[in-house]
Write a protein that binds this DNA or RNA. Structure first.
Length: 431
DNA sequence: CAATAATAGGAAAGCGCACC
DNA sequence: GGTGCGCTTTCCTATTATTG
C-alpha cells in the first residue's frame, strides 16, 4: 500500500501503477487523464480555484495569482495605509529596524510557508509558499503549491524565478522558521534551480513582541490579529491542520480540503501587510491610530535601543499622559535619558516626579537609587543620599515580598549605605 | 517535536572623577 | 599626578516564545 503511494507520488506520468478504484468516483475519467495535458486528477477543481500549471524539466507545480485593490480592507486597515507609512519612513533621519527608508515599496514580499510539520527534521517539507506584495494599485498574492514530493524542483523553480535580488522579506517568525526551513529544502534541489537570493528580512514577530509582550497573553499571529488588527478569520483552516490535510491530499489527490489552507495562507500574508502598517503608524506617530500608554513605553525602549534618543524621548513623553504605573515608568525612563545627556538637574526632576502618587514598584526602586546617586555626587548631601538609599532598600524588600520570582538584590544598595555612613562619620553633616 | 533570535540579567572591562 | 572606586558600556550566557 505504501509502495503504491510512493510510486504514485514519484511520477505522475506513470498512471499504470494506479488502480482504477483508487481514483475517486467524482474524479476525472482515467482514460481522459492519460491523454490530458494536465498531469493530476481534479483538473477542473484546480482551475476553478485559480491555479495555473508551472512546467519545469518534466515536472509541475501549481501557481495561483490573485489581486485585490489596495483600497480594500483587511480587518480595520486598508492595504493602502502602507503607502503613507512608506512615505513617512522616508522622512526619518535615524535608522530603525522597521525603517523602509531607501526601500522600494514594491520590493517587499510579505512571505509565509505551509509545511508538513514544525520540526525541521528531514521528514518535514514545504508544500505551499508565497507572498503578498504591492503592485501598482493592486495587492497581489502569489501562492506556489507542490503537488507531490517529485515536484520539488519545479516548485522551487517557479518560486525563485519570480523576483529580484532587491526584494526584501517580511515574515512572522520567518527568521527562525520559514527561511531556514526553505534553505534546507532548497539544498535538495540546488543543482536544478536558481540560487537563493540574499534578502533583507523584517521579522514582525519580534516587532510585535516588543510592543505587546506585556499587554497580550501571547504574540501568536492569531492573537495579534484579533486584538490589534480586528481581523476575524472566516472560511479558513488553522495552520495546525495543514500537515494532515496535505498528507490526505497526497493519498486521494482531491484538493478540496486544501482550500481552507490556501485561504489560511492568504490571510497570513495579507495580515503581514496591515501589521507592518499598524506598527509603523504607531512608531511614527501617525494620526488615527489608537495607541496605548504601554505601547508608547515599549516603543520608547525600542528607539532607545536603536540609539534614537529623540524618538525614544517623544514616546516616553507621550506615555506620561497615561495611568499611574505607565507614567511612573516613563518618568524614570526620561530621567535616564536626561542623565545620559549630561543634564543631571532635569534627570533629577524626572526621577522625583516618578515618585509622586504611585506606590512600590521596580520603577520606584530605580528612582530612589538614581536619586541617591545624583544627590551624593552632585549635592554631596550624604544625609539625604542615605535617606534615599534606605528608601531604595525598603522598596527592594517590598518588591521581592510582592513578586515571588524577584530575588532581592540589595548588595549594591547596602554597599552604598555603608559608604555613605562612613562619609557622614568622617565629615559629619553635609559640608 | 527543532531551530532561531531577541531579551534579560550578570560578569567583565573601560572610563572618568575624586581623593590623597 | 597616580591610584582606586563607582558608573557605564559591552560582551556573554541562559531563557523564552513562535512557526505548521
Amino acid at each position: 500500500m505504501v509502495r503504491g503511494k510512493l510510486q504514485r507520488l514519484k511520477g505522475y506520468i506513470n498512471t499504470e501503477t494506479d488502480s482504477v478504484q483508487r481514483i475517486p468516483k467524482d474524479g476525472p475519467d482515467p482514460e481522459q487523464e492519460k491523454t490530458s495535458s494536465f498531469p493530476f486528477s481534479y483538473e477542473k477543481k484546480w482551475y476553478d480555484f485559480g491555479f495555473e500549471l508551472h512546467f519545469y524539466e518534466g515536472e509541475y507545480s501549481l501557481i495561483r495569482r490573485k489581486t485585490y485593490p489596495v483600497s480594500s480592507f483587511h480587518g480595520s486597515s486598508a492595504f493602502s495605509d502602507l503607502f503613507h507609512v512608506h512615505k513617512q519612513w522616508q522622512e526619518e533621519e535615524e535608522d530603525h529596524p522597521l525603517s523602509l527608508k531607501g526601500v522600494d515599496l514594491e520590493d517587499l514580499l510579505f512571505f509565509d510557508t505551509e509545511t508538513t510539520g514544525l520540526s525541521s527534521g528531514a521528514g518535514t517539507t514545504i508544500f505551499l509558499m508565497g507572498y503578498s506584495r504591492i503592485k501598482g494599485d493592486q495587492v497581489e498574492i502569489v501562492q506556489h503549491f507542490m503537488p507531490g514530493p517529485a515536484s520539488e524542483a519545479a516548485f522551487f523553480h517557479g518560486f525563485l524565478t519570480d523576483f529580484s535580488d532587491t526584494n526584501q522579506l517580511v515574515s512572522y517568525n520567518g527568521k527562525a522558521f520559514d527561511w531556514p526551513h526553505l534553505k534546507s529544502r532548497h539544498a535538495f534541489v540546488r543543482n536544478e534551480v536558481p540560487k537563493l537570493p540574499l534578502f533583507g528580512h523584517y521579522d514582525l514577530l519580534h516587532a510585535a513582541r516588543r510592543l505587546w509582550k506585556a499587554e497580550l497573553p501571547s504574540c501568536r499571529l492569531s492573537i495579534v490579529e484579533e486584538e490589534k488588527l480586528n481581523v476575524k478569520r472566516v472560511n479558513e483552516t488553522p495552520g495546525s491542520l495543514a500537515p494532515i490535510l496535505y498528507f490526505e491530499y497526497l493519498n486521494h489527490e482531491d484538493p478540496e480540503e486544501l482550500l481552507g489552507i490556501f485561504k489560511h495562507h492568504e490571510w497570513d500574508v495579507l495580515s503581514l501587510i496591515v501589521l507592518f502598517s499598524r506598527i509603523s503608524q504607531r512608531l511614527l506617530h501617525m494620526p488615527h491610530v489608537q495607541t496605548t500608554g504601554r505601547e508608547h513605553l515599549e516603543m520608547g525602549k525600542w528607539f532607545e535601543q536603536a540609539k534614537n534618543s529623540q524618538q525614544a524621548e517623544a514616546h516616553y513623553v507621550k506615555a506620561l499622559e497615561y495611568d499611574g504605573g505607565i507614567r511612573q515608568e516613563a518618568y524614570v525612563k526620561l530621567g535616564h535619558i536626561y542623565k545620559k545627556q549630561k543634564n543631571p538637574e532635569k534627570a533629577r526632576e524626572f526621577f522625583e516626579k516618578s515618585l509622586t502618587g504611585t506606590g512600590e514598584s521596580k520603577a520606584a526602586r530605580e528612582a530612589y537609587e538614581e536619586l541617591a546617586k545624583l544627590i551624593e555626587h552632585q549635592d554631596k548631601d550624604y544625609e539625604k543620599a542615605l535617606v534615599y538609599t534606605n528608601l531604595a532598600i525598603e522598596s527592594e524588600k517590598k518588591i521581592s515580598r510582592l513578586l515571588r520570582s524577584h530575588k532581592p538584590k540589595t548588595e549594591g544598595l547596602l554597599k552604598r549605605k555603608t559608604r555613605l555612613e562612613i562619609k557622614i562619620e568622617k565629615w559629619g553633616d553635609s559640608q
